[in-house]
C-alpha cells in the first residue's frame, strides 16, 4: 500500500512548534531605537503567547516597552530581532500587501489617544476599514451602524469625534476596531485617558466583546479593574516579560498595585 504524500511529509516535518490555539506568539523580540549615536533598547528579548479568545493584560512601568511590544505583535513595525507569529504565520515573511490584509481583517487596534480621524463622522470612521476591505458601501454603512449600536452609540452616528466625550470617542474606536470582525483586538492603555467610571465601562465593553464574539483581547494597562477582569496578566520590565499569573493568584491589595 502506498503511503500518501501527506503522511510522508508529516513523518519528515517537525511537529508544529506551537499548539494551534496560540493566536499570537512572540519569540525573543528585541527592538533597538537609534537616535543619532544613542541607542534605546526598548525590548530585550520578550517572549509571550496569547491563547485564542483570551483576555490578556500586560502590565509594566512606564518606558518598559509595552507600546513597542504592541507595535511589534500588531505588525505596525518590525522587530530588530525575534519572531512574531499570528495564527502560526511568521509575519516577517509577509509583504506589505499581506500585512495590510492582516491589519485590515485580523487585528483591531485601540489606542490611548483614540486616533479617530477628526474630520470624519463616527460612521465614516467605522466605515473606513470596511472600505479598505473592499466592502460595498451600502452594506458597510449598515454594518457600521450595527457596530456603533453594539458599543452604545447608535444615536450618535453622524457626530464628529470632537463633539463626543472621551469615553464616547473610545467607544467609536472600539466599534472601528471591530469593523471587519477581527480575531484579535490590541488595546494600548485604552482607559488611560478616561476617568474611572468611563474606564470601567470600557473594560466591561471589551469583556462583552470577548464573551460574545470570542475575540482575543490584549491590552496594556495599569488599571486595577482591567487586571482583575482579565484571564491572564503578563508583567513586562525593562523590555522583558518577567512574570505571568492569573488574577485569582494575585493579591491585588499588595503595595505593588498602589
Amino acid at each position: 500500500m502506498a503511503i500518501t504524500n501527506d503522511k510522508l511529509r508529516s513523518l519528515f516535518e517537525p511537529p508544529a512548534q506551537a499548539p494551534p490555539d496560540h493566536v499570537i506568539r512572540a519569540v525573543g523580540l528585541t527592538k533597538v531605537y537609534r537616535m543619532g549615536t544613542e541607542e534605546t533598547h526598548a525590548l530585550r528579548g520578550a517572549s509571550m503567547q496569547a491563547l485564542r479568545g483570551e483576555y490578556l493584560s500586560i502590565m509594566g512601568p512606564s518606558g518598559s516597552g509595552k507600546s513597542t511590544l504592541f507595535n511589534l505583535i500588531g505588525a505596525l513595525q518590525k522587530p530588530t530581532s525575534g519572531k512574531v507569529y499570528i495564527d502560526q504565520v511568521d509575519i516577517a515573511q509577509l509583504d506589505t500587501e499581506e500585512l495590510a490584509w492582516l491589519r485590515c481583517r485580523k487585528i483591531g487596534y485601540i489606542f490611548q489617544t483614540f486616533n479617530l480621524i477628526q474630520v470624519m463622522t463616527c460612521l465614516e470612521n467605522v466605515m473606513l476599514p470596511m472600505a479598505y476591505a473592499g466592502r460595498e458601501a451600502e452594506e458597510a454603512r449598515e454594518s457600521a451602524i450595527r457596530k456603533l449600536e453594539l458599543v452604545g452609540l447608535g444615536h450618535r452616528v453622524l457626530h464628529k469625534p470632537a463633539e463626543l466625550s472621551g469615553g464616547q470617542q473610545q467607544r467609536v474606536a472600539i466599534a472601528r476596531a471591530m469593523a471587519n470582525d477581527p480575531a484579535i483586538i490590541l488595546a494600548d492603555e485604552p482607559t488611560a485617558n478616561l476617568d474611572q467610571k468611563t474606564g470601567e465601562e470600557m473594560i466591561e465593553l471589551l469583556a462583552y466583546l470577548k464573551q460574545t464574539f470570542a475575540v482575543t483581547i490584549i491590552s496594556a494597562t495599569h488599571d486595577l479593574k482591567m487586571l482583575q477582569r482579565s484571564d491572564r496578566i503578563l508583567w513586562i520590565e525593562d523590555g522583558r516579560i518577567v512574570k505571568a499569573a492569573r488574577p485569582d493568584d494575585i493579591d491585588f491589595q499588595s503595595s505593588e498595585f498602589h
Binding site: G74, L76, T96, E97, A100, W101, R103, C104, R105, Y109, N115, L116, I117, L128, P129, Y132, A133, R176, A179, N180
Partner: peptide, 16 residues
C-alpha cells in the same frame, strides 16, 4: 502623518 498611520493600521495599503 498621524492620519496616514491610522489609515495603515486600518488596512490601507501603501499603494492606496
Amino acid at each position: 502623518f498621524r492620519e496616514i498611520g491610522t489609515m495603515k493600521c486600518l488596512g490601507a495599503t501603501s499603494r492606496l
